[in-house]
Design a binder for these strands. Structure first.
Lengths: 356, 356
DNA sequence: TTGAAAGCGCTAACAA
DNA sequence: TTGTTAGCGCTTTCAA
């Protein structure tokens, strides 16, 4: 009789082979019992389960992925999780993925094409079953096109690269911007500013992000339609809260001060508020503010902020669904999902048609 | 001569075998050239690289993981990415991981033990090399202990389970709460309230979260030390912004209204502000507010909020470092890293020692 | 420097 | 219902 080495806790987690031996069945039977496929007798199942429990067996899903060709993992290529908008998108995405048995690996790109390229490469090598991407640039996107050509399931969210043949989940940025500005014009504003997103580009030229561009185009069209001209000082390019603050402070101190400022996203709106406070201006009496995206703090500033709210969480769940659908039906026609935004009137815009 | 089928884009991504054949070398040589290990002649390397480029080869890292036993992936088990605090922790964590070549898969638990158990199981099955966890409960934690016993590299962040033998990365919650409250007492406040975190538990009893408990204990000790009693109405249990709002509104409308309210985290502070506005009270004249964690909006409320700032991003990078260190030295002594908080005085606390 | 071959842990096709 | 066997694509001995 050979000496038996006892270890209550296996040093190197046990494999299905150990479980099979412990249960006195073949590897295949053990695998069937554990994996819940094929047919297994009650007796065998009990024995296998007992053995698995005893050994603390945990299925090795990398081995499983190896043979099934599926990792049950999705990737997410976004600018920055610590941006509240993306955080909510990711939450929706992971929830949608999880409810179908998928997990998600997260990659931040900081709106940088190089990071996006690298992240895409890593996710591809990890053989994720699908990828959510908020493209860093409308222009530098060959890597994305190449992934699609290779059959990678991809869904673009928040923004999209024109001509890239993937599913897309966005809100109606153009229309939302247009309607909001139209509303503000309708209550008497003629001098409306809207700093423009400008992120550092790949080779020095700016990254164009469709969602931002569309919001801004909506703004410009609403202005033009009302016969209002937009001085270039009203649309300074900026990147991030502090640059916006500086840019807006400049225009608020100028002779041609705007009566309203439109924040194209959460960080822009924060920068605008910073500038307004810095100039000791009263909202909405001296200057009106409205923004895109309804984050938690919008009800806690005084006056509470009027915004175009977008369903960030739903963007994420919808993207997960689209991706899962694409994975299961690679050749189904591509779809673009446009989710509705909601105009939330609070108190940060002055009605100039009323005197007093 | 056999007919040659040309495909500019391989349908099923090519394997190292295809690359080897294309380059006219063995699989091993191709693998060495591509993987950058072993020794390969210049000639062979060039041919392999050319072949790989031509075929659009992408290494299959699940196969690689299969043999190396490493997935180069970390897991993160946190309450909720859309909570700004965790979003920043995760950003730090992914940055730290990424700089060492690791990616991270994200699992939200909503402070729920069941989700945590399930998430841990999935991450284990995926064979992640290490796991960051913000434990949902101080009590129900056998699953974590079991993972540690099985040799899983684990780091606890923000809070920890007493007695669980892992690395820990936290801020000094007790001291931070204690000092802040002491400061507020020093400027004349005697009636200070602090709603207490209470999350739905596993079997109905509350989940205790060490970070929250410690902050609260710091508060109570500071009060006791000053000889101040804390009526139980000042520490209502609540969960999330709206419950806090309700609870605080109740005490603000009572005869024994507190002169200051301490928000134990971001969502609590928001709930407190909601309540204060709802009761039409002026900050800090009628009621003072201070909170834990310095999120973006704290400078945009009026008056700007005095807070205990914690280095959420650094918590994440530190956790990544600790985890990577643990992975490479499984038997090194466990460490607890206590990161410093910063008291940021802004304007939301009234000095009651000054009249006027 | 290179190649042949074994094997990581699992699933799946096929036989029994 | 069960067992046998052949891989999945890679890394890694071990020889040559």
């Amino acid at each position: 009789m050979l000496p038996v080495v006892q270890a209550s806790v296996p040093a190197q987690g046990s494999s299905i082979f150990d479980v099979a031996r412990e249960a006195g069945v073949s590897r295949a039977t053990a695998a069937r019992a554990l994996g819940g496929y094929g047919s297994v007798s009650e007796e065998a199942r009990r024995r296998v389960e007992a053995a698995a429990a005893k050994l603390g067996y945990s299925v090795n899903s990398v081995a499983r992925s190896m043979v099934t060709g599926q990792t049950m993992t999705l990737g997410a290529l976004i600018a920055d999780v610590s941006n509240p908008f993306f955080a909510r998108v990711i939450r929706g995405f992971t929830d949608g993925a999880r409810s179908a048995g998928y997990d998600v690996v997260l990659v931040n790109t900081d709106e940088t094409v190089d990071s996006e390229i690298h992240g895409l490469k890593v996710l591809t090598e990890k053989r994720v079953d699908g990828i959510l991407v908020a493209p860093a640039s409308e222009e530098a996107s060959e890597h994305l096109a190449s992934a699609v050509d290779h059959g990678q399931a991809l869904v673009q969210v928040d923004r999209f690269v024109p001509g890239l043949d993937t599913d897309v989940v966005v809100v109606n940025n153009y229309e939302s911007g247009y309607q909001a500005v139209k509303r503000v014009i309708a209550i008497g504003h003629t001098r409306i500013a809207a700093p423009l997103q400008r992120t550092r580009g790949h080779d020095g030229h700016a990254n164009l992000i469709s969602s931002m561009l569309e919001r801004h185009q909506g703004y410009r069209d609403a202005m033009a339609e009302a016969g209002l001209t937009v001085p270039s000082a009203y649309t300074p390019p900026a990147h991030g809260r502090s640059e916006v603050r500086t840019a807006v402070a400049g225009m608020l101190n100028s002779a041609d001060r705007p009566t309203a400022v439109f924040g194209l996203d959460d960080s822009f709106t924060l920068g605008i508020i910073d500038a307004v406070y810095g100039c000791d201006l009263v909202v909405p009496d001296q200057v009106s503010i409205f923004g895109f995206d309804d984050t938690e703090w919008t009800t806690v500033v005084r006056p509470p902020l009027s915004v175009i709210a977008q369903p960030a969480y739903d963007l994420g769940t919808c993207a997960a669904q689209a991706l899962l659908h694409r994975i299961h039906a690679p050749d189904a026609p591509r779809q673009t999902h446009v989710l509705p935004t909601t105009w939330i009137e609070r108190g940060s815009i002055r009605d100039l048609t009323r005197t007093g």
